[in-house]
């Protein structure tokens, strides 16, 4: 029996979809049966990030309304045979599914998979309620900015109200250099404010843009720093103990000068 994780943030553009695609792909690489659900009805994204946009025939709304069978709606990944996508519908009607239907859907998916990752739309309206309805656990994604952390805090409150206990945090797009210069909130700062457990820290990494261009999640690229961070995160989700990645790049000339002078070492 699998578990449903909702991946949510409140604020848009912090990397929910990228996080969903990468954690899911990495879990599938470890051999788990994984289903990724795009719960953003009307704004389909996850298929593109996974490179599966040409294969969609049926979608979540079709399945929820019984217009197709589970097997018809689940799209198998190009690379991993135990990774599936349930795409969002492109309908304009956001009320095309309700929380009850989502709950039912999740129960069915749990029977045949180990991890179900639900990519939640931004915001706290119907789409959020749908995505949360069938979820057992939650992963909150944020970036080290005031607005994103604030929205994460709101979401954590709403998750608690929905009785999803102990959400886990992914802090995305950290720039170690800016943190060192005192120009970016650090991991500890964010944790202190939000008071939730850390699942992982992902560095800001241009390779994410390249992998999104190609439709190949960064975890498939062994040279990608962000990919490495997401692989670590997926191992933690699977129950392994992996220390937080060392994001510091301590080779720079100025770093050495500063350390030599005993100033502002990170």
């Amino acid at each position: 029996m699998g578990e449903v994780y909702v991946i949510t943030s409140g604020k848009g553009g912090v990397g929910k979809t990228t996080t969903t695609a990468n954690i899911g792909t990495s879990l599938a690489m470890q051999g788990y049966r994984v289903v990724l659900v795009d719960a953003d009805i009307g704004l389909r994204n996850l298929d593109v990030v996974l490179g599966l946009e040409n294969r969609i025939v049926y979608d979540l709304v079709d399945l929820a309304h019984g217009r197709c069978r589970m097997r018809q709606a689940l799209i198998r990944d190009r690379r991993l045979e135990n990774l599936y996508l349930l795409p969002a519908a492109q309908t304009k009607d956001k009320t095309a599914v309700n929380p009850e239907q989502m709950k039912e859907l999740c129960e069915k998916l749990k029977l045949e998979s180990d991890f179900i990752l639900m990519d939640c739309p931004a915001g706290i309206e119907q789409g959020f309620r749908n995505a949360v309805a069938g979820a057992d656990k939650a992963i909150v994604v944020t970036t080290p900015e005031v607005a994103a952390v604030r929205d994460a805090d709101r979401i954590i409150g709403l998750l608690e109200a929905s009785e999803i206990k102990d959400p886990l945090l992914v802090l995305n797009r950290i720039r170690p250099k800016m943190v060192r210069m005192g120009d970016m909130l650090d991991v500890e700062d964010v944790i202190e404010h939000l008071a939730i457990d850390m699942l992982g820290v992902v560095p800001d990494d241009e390779s994410i843009i390249i992998s999104t261009n190609k439709g190949e999640p960064a975890v498939l690229n062994s040279a990608s720093k962000a990919g490495e961070a997401y692989r670590n995160i997926s191992h933690r989700l699977a129950g392994d103990e992996v220390p937080l990645m060392n994001l510091e790049n301590r080779g720079g000339f100025m770093d050495r000068v500063r350390r030599l002078l005993g100033l502002r070492t990170g």
Binding site: E145, V146, D153, G157, G182
Partner: peptide, 18 residues
């Protein structure tokens, strides 16, 4: 540092929200 400005703003905004 802009970080400490962000920290302070975050502290206040979270307090207001909560």
């Amino acid at each position: 540092s802009s970080k400490s400005v962000a920290q302070e703003r975050l502290r206040l905004v979270l307090m207001h929200d909560r």
